[in-house]
Design a protein around this nucleic acid. Structure first.
Lengths: 221, 221
DNA sequence: TTGAATTTTTAGACTAGTCTAAAAATTGTT
DNA sequence: AACAATTTTTAGACTAGTCTAAAAATTCAA
């Protein structure tokens, strides 16, 4: 397998995740924003990754991962989520403390290590934030009837199934209001003018902005 | 604490280990050989590390770590040895399979992670090769009456206490002849002309060159 | 459908780390 | 103490990844 730099790996991962909720090609600017870098840097990297056949790229037309590129991205995501699971399950870190460390650990090169870690953890299906962990073969087991909190309807009762993992402060906030994986919630109301959602959590009312509601996934009961 | 690149960390570690068995300053060439690089590259790096006050360096006079530099080096060695212990104890790797992976893991930046790993492993005192693991504070507990096999005398009976960890093939060879930590050996003979040592291991006679004998440490019984 | 706004690319520069080749300093030997 | 051998440094170049500023392409709106 092609050996990649950390930077190349980070680009692949970013393109993959952006592709998850975007139809068609990913634009240079979109990617630059995600990578906290400049469009010109992105262009350079796209040329290089295209050269290596990890993605398709045509000037001014954005990019899309090839199968090769996708499987690289999935391998990195697999490592990231396995390491997060290790940190929480074995080293007792909080779910809000592991993202940064996993960002480093995901670049460790050794398939053997990854697979043994997977086994050591008991082949977990999801990471501490509820995100599915891709298998050895890169397959992600589809998670049943999950929707975003932003797509819920008033009156619904649901279970918290997953949250975005990349903002420490967001996770700390969830901790503070007592929201964890498996927590039961009731959708009390939605405000039409700004999309805010009012939710009952452990007998307390909490209001989520639409931005937050898009970062939480739930399973309706 | 000062943030260092992987390359800078590798130089510090190399200088530290070379200093262990060399009196006075480490020469540029010596370091270049250890780092598998050119003397000119070493000179550049020494200037940079001197600038950062991690070592003392004067043109043509070699270098020596400052206390700051030493404690950085010890922190990296601590991480390396803890990760090796993790790989062998928890993920069932062989002692001959872990060096390369630990070379990557030793650069993960998180003191919290290191200390929790230490705890998870039960605060081990030595790694799978018998090398002592520096503590949080950088202190290495002195290992009692260990000598190099090369310094043994004929007729001596001893226990294997440690081996160099950085050559996979050497470790595989030791596996093959049934030599592990704790194995008992008898020194049968030493050949004056080349320094070879003939040893009895599990009722089998084995001959070690002086080069090998310097990479094995023992405790006389 | 054309001109303005936006997006994207190019050109050129910078840093970190490395290299080769040549110059300079040190060391060793007589 | 002087010269030869060795070691070390300097000078200049290269790659990867990034940046700024300017040019080019695309998109959008009147």
């Amino acid at each position: 397998m092609l050996r990649l730099t950390q930077s190349e790996e980070n680009y692949l991962k970013a393109i993959f995740t952006l592709s998850q909720d975007t139809e068609g090609a990913i634009s240079t600017n979109e990617l630059a924003e995600k990578m906290l870098t400049k469009a010109s840097s992105v262009t350079d990297m796209l040329k290089k990754l295209c050269e290596k056949e990890l993605l398709e790229y045509q000037k001014y037309q954005g990019c899309a991962l090839t199968n090769e590129g996708k499987s690289h991205a999935l391998a990195i995501i697999r490592k990231h989520r396995l390491w997060e699971t290790f940190l929480v399950d074995k080293l007792s870190f909080g779910w809000d403390e592991v993202h940064e460390i996993a960002e480093q650990l995901e670049h460790i090169q050794s398939t053997e290590l990854t697979d043994r870690l997977d086994e050591f953890l008991g082949f977990p299906k999801v990471d501490p934030h509820g995100e599915p962990i891709p298998g050895k073969d890169g397959r992600i087991e589809s998670v049943s009837n999950r929707i975003l909190l932003s797509e819920s309807v008033v009156g619904m009762r649901a279970i918290i199934m997953g949250v975005e993992d990349d903002q420490t402060e967001f996770l700390q906030y969830l901790n503070k209001i007592g929201l964890h994986l498996g927590t039961q919630i009731d959708i009390l109301d939605k405000l039409n003018f700004d999309g805010s959602i009012i939710v009952m959590i452990n007998d307390k009312q909490v209001q989520f902005s639409i931005t937050i509601a898009k970062q939480i996934s739930i399973k309706p009961l």
